[in-house]
Amino acid sequence: MIASEDASGYAYEVLAARDEGAARKRAVALAATHRARAQRWAEVVEVEGTAQDPREVAYGLTNVDDTAVVGIDLESSLAATYSTLVGQATAVERATLVDLLAESARAAEAWGAPAAAFPGMPERAAD
């Protein structure tokens, strides 16, 4: 999760540098959110500042020509990852992961992704 959240923060920083107006403000806010989550995860698993910290200086990006597509892809990917972690988490951890799953799903929808009955699990949406 550390690298996923950090890469999302980086992608939003790139979008913020390119966009303007409301899109830029939104990208700046989301970049800060994702970078802060990456930092918290690194602290929780005690890798912050160590050789095991998976965060990079830069990440490869695709589809950066369409801000909405990037936002949908980033947030949907995070929702899928959090939904997987929810099923593996202890009861104590589960509430936090469900909150992060819901936040990612709402952010994806805000970018224009269709609402899913089971965010992060599109294969279950028809159930």
Rank of each mutant, 00 (worst) to 15 (best):
Y59Q: 14
E46C: 02
A108E: 01
L85K: 15
T90H: 07
A68S: 12
N63E: 15
G87A: 09
A68Q: 14
E43K: 11
L100Y: 07
L74M: 11
V98G: 09
F118V: 09
G87L: 09
E109P: 08
R35F: 10
L85M: 15
H34A: 11
A58G: 02
L74A: 01
E109T: 12
R35P: 00
T50L: 03
V86D: 03
M121S: 08
A116F: 03
A42D: 00
Y82S: 09
E56S: 12
R55C: 10
A42S: 13
G71Y: 09
T90M: 11
A42E: 01
S77W: 05
L97S: 07
D65C: 02
F118L: 09
R55V: 15
A68F: 04
F118G: 04
T81G: 15
I72Y: 00
L101E: 13
T62M: 07
G120H: 13
P114I: 01
D66E: 11
Q52F: 03
A42K: 03
T81P: 02
G60W: 14
D99F: 13
A79P: 12
E43Q: 10
L101R: 15
A107N: 11
A117W: 03
V86I: 15
V57F: 08
E75H: 15
A89W: 12
E103C: 03
H34C: 12
E93S: 08
V98Y: 08
A113Y: 07
L100E: 07
A102E: 07
D66H: 10
A113V: 02
L74R: 13
E109L: 09
L74F: 04
R94D: 02
P114G: 04
V45Y: 05
S76I: 00
D53T: 01
A79I: 06
L61E: 08
R106T: 10
V70W: 08
P114H: 05
A80K: 12
E75V: 12
E56Y: 05
P54F: 01
S83D: 10
D73P: 10
E75F: 15
L61H: 14
E56C: 07
